[in-house]
């Protein structure tokens, strides 16, 4: 009978009978428990914790999406049900008419057209300036490259509010904001100031830097110019990042509120967020806010973003998440 102490809790028992035989029966014990019971215990406890984690995370996820659920069901309720003392988690009468009313009463199509036009042109401009700048920073050697890039990064710390005041004056001095503002003026004032984004330059430069320099040298040997190398090699290779930038920029325009509100002189020139916040959903007779209409309008504004997210989830999350990698 031999008993060897491995550590405080575990022992090895060699049963006497088997000492001379070929098969040694090894029993590892912790207290009174054998391996089988220990394994079983561990399995039970890990299953238990997994269930707890799933319950916790499901509860948190439900809280997270509760506002969306509430938005959708409120948009389908009538006002009596919304104002009732007992709140219902599903509408008793489904009011599709709320949506019909919203589309008839508010110029959502105008706002959406404005938003899409502004989004397309500000994205195009941003893509061009970003590609050029990122290429210069990633591939071309020039004096003061690191210093200029450092200054670029530093400008990200300046709050945009500092610029809004003066930009408003600048845009007005270009004649884009005046009493007889045209739709084109309004578009220009909402597009041109947003053609530069230092963050996207940073993002694309990182991507360009990952492309091996040997490709550049090979293109040089083949007599390709920087210009054709940029468009034929680098841009196609960086396509995922460019898609990310496009979608994030589009989302930014969809959500922009302050600047369009400031520079547009007529309500029909405004963008979707302005249209939503500026619209009055109160009943003309009683003055009570009709939450059903309001939430239907909110759904109309939110759903396109969700669709975009469903189709481009990978690109959106990659573009947003890239920021954290370098710390």
């Amino acid at each position: 009978m031999a008993e060897q102490v491995l550590n405080k809790k575990s022992y090895i028992d060699f049963t006497e009978t088997n000492l001379q035989g070929q098969d040694i029966n090894l029993v590892i014990k912790e207290g009174n428990a054998t391996v089988e019971t220990l394994r079983k215990r561990e399995k039970v406890s890990s299953t238990f914790w997994t269930i707890i984690i799933y319950i916790a995370i499901t509860a948190l996820a439900l809280i997270m999406i509760l506002p969306f659920y509430w938005m959708i069901i409120t948009s389908l309720k009538n006002n009596d049900e919304i104002m009732a003392t007992t709140q219902t988690f599903f509408p008793t009468v489904v009011m599709w008419s709320n949506y019909v009313y919203v589309f008839q009463a508010f110029n959502f199509l105008t706002y959406m057209t404005n938003t899409i036009v502004v989004a397309i042109f500000s994205t195009l401009g941003t893509l061009i300036t970003t590609i050029f700048a990122a290429f210069a920073f990633a591939r071309l050697q020039f004096k003061g490259r690191e210093q200029v890039f450092g200054i670029f990064l530093m400008t990200m710390m300046i709050p945009g509010e500092m610029m809004v005041i003066s930009n408003y004056i600048t845009v007005a001095s270009f004649g884009w904001v005046s009493e007889n503002q045209t739709l084109l003026d309004a578009y220009l004032s909402m597009i041109v100031p947003f053609w530069v984004s230092v963050y996207y330059i940073y993002l694309l430069r990182q991507n360009f830097n990952q492309i091996p320099n040997e490709l550049y040298l090979a293109a040089k040997v083949d007599g390709k110019s920087d210009w054709s190398y940029l468009w034929k090699v680098m841009v196609p290779l960086a396509a995922p990042t460019l898609i990310s930038i496009t979608i994030l920029k589009f989302m930014g325009t969809w959500n922009s509120y302050v600047w369009p509100n400031l520079v547009t002189q007529k309500s029909e020139y405004r963008l979707i967020s302005n249209g939503l916040r500026g619209a009055s959903f109160s009943d003309p007779d009683s003055g009570i806010t009709q939450f059903g209409y309001q939430m239907a309008a909110t759904v109309v504004v939110t759903v396109p973003l969700f669709l975009l997210f469903i189709f481009f989830r990978k690109y959106i999350m990659r573009g947003v998440g890239r920021a954290g990698i370098k710390g």
Binding site: P67, F68, W70, M71, T74, M251, W254, N255, Y257, I272, S273, L276, R277, Q294, M295, T298, V301, T302, L305, F306, L308, F309, I316
Partner: peptide, 10 residues
């Protein structure tokens, strides 16, 4: 991926 104004109203 939501509009800050819209969900604020929610």
């Amino acid at each position: 991926v939501t509009n800050t104004i819209a969900v604020g109203m929610v």
